[in-house]
């Protein structure tokens, strides 16, 4: 593969916005980039470390972050000043973190999401095609197969958690010209199967539970991202599994493997294959394909 690098994005001045009396929303950029996301993660970690009195929730986002606080303990303007000083002292060129590289099996074009996709055709951008065919076409792929190869061909970084508990937003670790981008549904679906793998904007999402949704649907994973009863070993610490900064490697599986993994999950014995390693953003920017290969090394040993 060509030795492509990922260009750094110069971020604009952040926007500090008040969400009434008890939230501050900070937009680091209006568009998505690794720079904006790494900055969101670095700043929110630093805010957590400073343990500011009055700060109640710290939520990193894709290219922004959200703080909930008690304005009677920490005045809104005072909080914004503190956030600005954290930002001034945060330099992401030195930012590193311990990451988990995780095998994430996906049965693409599975029967369950296919049925859902076909049930909501009348309001879709392309009623004649499946979500996979439509996404392939508008992103310049010859076929759904080629599109699946691209989606599963490079790992994805968890850049935000949210919507519902356990749902990871994932941004593929490739240069901008290879990023997939698709619209959300014209009208959100009233139904999405649990464990569906979908795509909207520049993000893959895994739906933890059955419910409404607006992302294009490509497949279903046999594994869980949310386990409220904490039955599975990887959920001992938290009811949700993914965390911002995790690297998910969406791996195409067949129905037989899907069923086998599903059986293990239902028996409560499934364990995620995980490799723990350090993530060095500068090395990743310099040679993403080589770096991704190195990240995955040993995961399937």
């Amino acid at each position: 593969m060509a030795a492509e690098r990922i260009a750094h994005k110069d971020l604009p001045e952040p926007r500090y916005e008040h969400g009434a009396d008890d939230y501050v929303f900070v937009e680091l950029d209006r568009e998505m980039s690794f720079d904006a996301n790494f900055r969101s993660m670095a700043i929110t970690q630093e805010i957590a470390e400073r343990d500011l009195a009055g700060v109640e929730e710290i939520c990193p986002g894709n290219a922004s972050y959200l703080i909930r606080f008690d304005p009677e303990e920490l005045a809104p303007d005072e909080l914004v000043e503190r956030l600005k000083s954290v930002a001034a002292e945060t330099d992401i060129t030195e930012y590193r973190w311990e990451t988990r590289v995780i095998d994430f099996p996906v049965l693409y074009a599975d029967e369950w999401t296919h049925e859902t996709v076909m049930n909501f055709r009348e309001n879709h951008q392309d009623p004649e095609a499946t979500d996979l065919e439509y996404s392939a076409r508008i992103n310049g792929f010859d076929s759904a197969e080629a599109f699946i190869d691209a989606h599963s061909g490079a790992p994805h970084l968890v850049t935000m958690m949210g919507f519902v508990p356990g749902l990871p937003f994932c941004f593929q670790m490739v240069p901008r010209d290879r990023q997939i981008e698709v619209p959300k549904y014209v009208e959100p679906r009233t139904n999405t199967p649990s464990r569906a793998v979908g795509y909207g904007g520049a993000f893959t999402a895994v739906y933890p539970v059955q419910g409404a949704g607006g992302y294009q649907l490509y497949g279903r994973t046999p594994i869980e991202v949310l386990d409220v009863d904490q039955r599975l070993p990887d959920f001992a610490e938290s009811i949700v599994f993914p965390q911002p900064g995790d690297v998910l490697n969406f791996r195409r599986i067949d129905r037989e493997e899907y069923d086998a993994i599903r059986e293990e999950v239902e028996a409560g014995s499934y364990e995620y294959p995980i490799k723990e390693t350090d993530f060095a953003p500068e090395d990743f920017f310099e040679a993403p394909d080589e770096y991704n290969e190195k990240l995955l090394e040993g995961l399937y040993a």
């Binding site: 009434a20 939230y23 929303f25 937009e27 950029d29 568009e31 290219a63 922004s64 919507f163 909207g200």
Partner: peptide, 11 residues
């Protein structure tokens, strides 16, 4: 649409 972000309660 915006790049997916956090929503305050009450927003």
């Amino acid at each position: 649409n915006v790049v997916d972000l956090g929503y305050p309660v009450g927003s």
